[in-house]
Nucleic acid binder design. Structure first.
Lengths: 338, 338
DNA sequence: GACCGTTTTTTGATCGATCAAATTTCGTTT
DNA sequence: AAACGAAATTTGATCGATCAAAAAACGGTC
């Protein structure tokens, strides 16, 4: 072995006085090799500092041990901090399974489809994780066609039948989050709890509103429960809440996001009504800094769940990743009280 | 070619009636192939939907076209949103250069060194980007030893001689950010500008304070310039600023972070001194929501710069990434006025 | 049209591992 | 000690591309 170059399996075999295949077996199927031989081989591996060449192995096995993740530009749906924390967690978990996380960027759907095709042709990834899947996602169709296992972070909105999405998914249960938040405020400030959310319909928004309605609706009688809307801006939220506080009709506000909550909170404080409790959603640094309670999504849990779906339970050694069976899972978020 | 399987270079060659190597040349060195032949080959590529197998190519060329990035857990130094935006930007730029970004996680230095060794042995990455490099970083030493090109996001703190770091780096010029912020406040509210930062010495903190001192020092005479400190909490910052406002000695506050700025801002508002201007650092969503001016770091610019250092200017086709020459670059952040 | 220097194309070897099958070694049994 | 089946090990082929060198085709000159 030439010094300065990295050792190959051949070098190890020669050093240990065995054949290539035996070295390979020591690494990949130790049960096939006698104890004494294993020792010899391990000694040689240590001595030469050998570690298998990833590319050669992947070429031969046709497996890349890599999971592709699209890194969305900041936009609607799952993005920003939640996505980034998800990627963080995914990277850590993947690493314990000997998997790698490969990022790719795409500005348009076409570009992403091209990426997926390239991945399929080039054998770059063993599986792909999608985010923000609309109903009838063309990426899902392509991935199925190209026989690449995949799962989604987020359920497609507007699909009635959660049981039959057609591909595996994991999502955060927004309704459960606002349910918990509403139940908490109910106990703390009483029944006069408003909801502050986006003006237009959106899957995420509707989901979060639903949790509030499920608790408040049966009590207050549906039509009387105050529902506010505002665009995604602190000042607008502030204005809406201010007028509501003048009438003295509410004691608590459940918000679709922390930005809404900051507006509501400031309005309350400035109106001298610090007793009015606000709960936000996303548990951002801003909410933490201002001491506003918030519903914390748990992208880390999503990462674990999605990996299990794709690759089987932790500890399993899988030769070929199985095509995951379509099924969904909702992760319950956690209410952070401040 | 068997239906269901992806086409290989061999299939294309057969279909086009040429040899493997000619197909390879059409893809990698078209100038060596006659125009008419190129057409034939391209037609065959189209017809078969061929795209080269990445693993085979990498095994042969011994290049992975992949850049490794350590994804730090949330902690001091570069992390959180800045790091995530950096990774975002890096992914997008890398993609236009035909490079991929591979993430890896490590909890300890040892674990990271092991990763680096594995990368070197396995030929997984062509280059690595480090973050949060201390002086005498053992990772830097190992990477040099293993001859893996690398660059750092962030300069090692406490090193006097920025010219001789020993490895290439790109960092955000915190002092320039606070300089700009201070100059702005100077014009807007006058000379009575305080600085609010961390209590203990830290590279980042000192850097940001320096920018303020460089502007204020020469004017006010160094000792008289009010310098506040507080831990990283909104309420503590609020308290410090409140007492300063009582004495009516300041009209503006430069802060080391947005969290400090939020505290300062709230203290000013509650003291009825909305005229006191606050400038934060990091331009987080919270500062935006509250309408606080802030210094925006530009991790996207850092990403571009670091890629250029590692791989040469955009558009260059490089067969083997050159070992980058040690040099540093400071990226000037941008003051966002609200 | 034979000769020569380029340009274009093809052939054989190689990257470093695993798969599949052949071969050798081993422990039992008769 | 020969025979046998199981366990351990080795050998040859292969994954799909690029490199290096050899061979063929081409264009121009005399």
């Amino acid at each position: 072995m030439v010094p300065g170059k990295v050792a190959t399996i051949e070098d190890v075999a020669r050093a240990a006085g065995v054949s290539r295949q035996t070295v390979s077996n020591v690494i990949n199927a130790p049960s096939k090799v006698r104890e004494a031989t294993q020792q010899k081989v391990h000694a040689a591996i240590e001595a030469l500092g050998y570690s298998p060449n990833a590319m050669a192995r992947r070429l031969r096995t046709q497996r890349s041990s890599t999971i592709g993740v699209r890194l969305d530009a900041f936009s609607g749906g799952i993005s920003g901090v939640v996505l980034d924390r998800f990627v963080h967690a995914l990277t850590e978990h993947a690493s314990t399974r000997g998997l790698r996380v490969l990022l790719y960027a795409a500005r348009t759907m076409d570009e992403e489809l091209r990426h997926i095709n390239d991945f399929a042709d080039g054998g770059e990834v063993d599986a792909i994780i999608l985010t923000n899947t609309p109903p009838k996602d063309p990426r899902a169709a392509l991935l199925r066609e190209r026989a690449i296992p995949f799962a989604a972070f987020g359920r497609p909105w507007g699909v009635e039948d959660l049981e039959n999405i057609g591909h595996p998914w994991v999502d955060i249960d927004g309704a459960a989050g606002t349910r918990a938040a509403t139940a908490y405020l109910l106990e703390r400030v009483g029944e006069r709890i408003a909801f502050l959310g986006w003006p237009s319909d959106s899957g995420t928004g509707d989901d979060r509103e639903r949790g509030w309605r499920e608790i408040i609706g049966p009590r207050a009688g549906d039509p009387s429960a105050p529902r506010l809307v505002s665009a995604e801006s602190v000042t607008e939220a502030q204005a809406k809440v201010r007028s509501l506080l003048r009438d003295n009709t509410i004691d608590g506000i459940i918000c679709a996001t922390d930005v809404h909550a900051i507006g509501a909170h400031l309005a309350a404080v400035r109106a001298g009504r610090s007793d009015v409790q606000t709960v936000g959603f996303d548990n951002t640094a801003a909410a933490e800094a201002l001491g506003i309670s918030s519903v914390e999504q748990l992208p880390e849990v999503v990462a674990t769940a999605i990996l299990e779906m794709l690759m089987g339970p932790e500890g399993t050694k899988i030769s070929r990743p199985p095509t995951p069976t379509p099924a969904g899972r909702l992760v319950e978020p956690k209410l952070i009280i401040r």
